[in-house]
Design a protein around this nucleic acid. Structure first.
Lengths: 329, 329
DNA sequence: TTGTAAGCGTTATCAA
DNA sequence: TTGATAACGCTTACAA
């Protein structure tokens, strides 16, 4: 099935190794032979068998990207960034979800991989990296000297955002958090609570709502505080999806934003612009691009496992105003 | 690099074939041997080398999805559908962009593939399918007896949508089209123009704007008709991105929607709900799911190359109203 | 129940 | 400048 190197060799009347040499652009082939083989490859539509190749050869010129959360549409931006850098540097991109990922790592089908997948176990990554398979992680930082992390600096923009809300006079906060074990959420909440602490604003744990980054959990969070008639002046959300959920709930309940309650997000998703959400803009295309660059540099032997931080900036929108119930500062 | 079948065999004191038999759950292995080997596989973390495997074996239990347009966020929904069906049926999913696709087709690394990629050449698909590699296409219909197409019925919902606009009294239309060679656009415009023709409404070609499915081209389309002071009563757009572009331009120009000009889209993208766009809802998750099902059925020998049409329904929103300048019907 | 050996499509080594 | 041959990791007859 499919034409192989032998078919070409037979047709050309040369040996398989010669065909291989031609196809791989090696010097040790006569001009005529090369021309003939090339012509035949065209005609017979020869495409090297990746499996056969990877069995023998060390370096695969394909990188792997692993993800699994289909709800996050910015993943496509990241993929685009990866794909562009990889393509420009002679690498192919292969993408897989958690299950199949291990299968394509380590085997020299792929030269290295980029991980953005909460379901991927640290243990697997550590083990694989220890075998000198290059890995870049986008969604965590790992204590391995062989794994490069490219992560977003969540702390600084969240600090900036919350500081501004304090300056505008907000005092009564609800924080709508994401999954508690994720680095992202820890950092975002950390910045939030540090700012409040520094400003001398008390934050009771009961105003922390533990969500899951999905719209629905933001919706529920808002509903709860509305029903208990304990509406804060502002909902600071760990991501945009949840912020949108909060906004929907507030609107349904007849609350005006930001007059009755303000809302902020994080991520700058597609919808954010439309609802004029105050959020943090993460350069996702660049994130993918830089991840691919880091990976390929490591593959090429320019080892560098220094964690890389990507900076993100606040995008101010109308969902942040000035609190109705002014408090003296 | 990485532990192979031989390493396990050596450690267990058995032959490689026995390990293979264990790993592949074959009957011809003693209970003790099986237990021992399994234990070792765990401990030493054995993962079969996909390349070695695919070289010998016929059926790969991995399917391939090929795409390349990163602007269309509904792709993630499709991928999710594919991934779910595949996963539930013992198949892995591998995803690639145009360049690397050919490399993984045909070689028995993958058992079949699903195509949604304008850059993928018909010629390649026809040739590959002729070698009995199962292919499902989502973005075209091909005259091959070996290629299954799963396509959206654009015609019916667009007909329904345009008929309603006629009924509401719209007479002066602009059609904002996508790339002219795409089947989608042809069908959408075809339905549009058939309805107008049947209703006896003239449609001058100069009111056809040829866009590229991106927001910007919708924006430009609207700007052009605004500048020439030739605003239609309604912009019928071939997709949502462009409709959003139109809406932005209209708003910038101070036009009220739908009072000054109505707008309709197609796709029901994430933003559509927020701007209450009248559009057509395409069940993308289901599309992916059904594509995977069709593919896997063909892989499993239940051959069926009958083209499959997926139906989509109109989602009515506030961007469609009643035209200001009433015309007698 | 287990082992031996050949072969899948490549590439690398070495000899011609 | 070329070709024969072994090897990559695995599966599969077939032999033991």
């Amino acid at each position: 099935m499919g034409v192989g190197i032998k078919d070409i060799a037979a047709k050309a009347g040369v040996s398989a190794s010669t065909v291989s040499n031609v196809v791989n652009n090696r010097a040790n082939v006569g001009e005529e032979t090369r021309a003939l083989v090339l012509k035949l490859c065209q005609e017979m539509n020869y495409i090297p068998n990746a499996a056969g190749k990877s069995l023998k050869t060390k370096d695969s010129k394909t990188i792997l990207f692993n993800f699994s959360d289909f709800d996050r549409s910015f993943y496509l931006k990241i993929i685009e960034g990866i794909n562009d850098y990889a393509g420009d540097n002679g690498y192919d991109l292969m993408i897989c979800t958690t299950k199949s990922c291990e299968k394509y790592m380590r085997n020299n089908l792929t030269a290295g991989c980029i991980i953005l997948d909460g379901k991927m176990k640290n243990e697997v990554l550590l083990r694989t990296a220890a075998e000198h398979y290059p890995i870049v992680v986008l969604d965590r930082a790992l204590p391995s000297p062989f794994i490069k992390s490219v992560v977003v600096n969540n702390y600084d923009p969240m600090t900036e955002l919350v500081q501004e809300t304090v300056k505008r006079g907000y005092r009564k906060y609800v924080f709508v958090g994401g999954p508690e074990h994720t680095e992202d959420n820890k950092e975002r909440f950390g910045a939030f609570s540090d700012v409040l602490k520094k400003a001398g604003i008390a934050f009771d744990r009961k105003y922390y709502y533990s969500g899951d980054y999905r719209e629905k959990s933001g919706y529920q969070a808002a509903k709860i505080f509305m029903y208990t008639e304990d509406l804060p002046e502002i909902f600071v959300c760990a991501n945009d999806n949840m912020a949108i959920g909060v906004i929907k709930a507030l609107r349904e309940g007849g609350c005006r934003i930001p007059e009755d309650a303000a809302v902020t997000g994080f991520d700058n998703c597609e919808l954010a612009e439309t609802v004029e959400l105050t959020t943090v803009n993460i350069p996702n295309y660049e994130r993918g691009y830089l991840a691919a660059r880091s990976l390929i540099e490591n593959i090429d032997g320019r080892k560098n496992f220094e964690p890389m931080k990507i900076s993100a900036g606040v995008s101010w929108g109308k969902t942040l105003g000035i609190p109705r119930t002014k408090t003296t500062k």
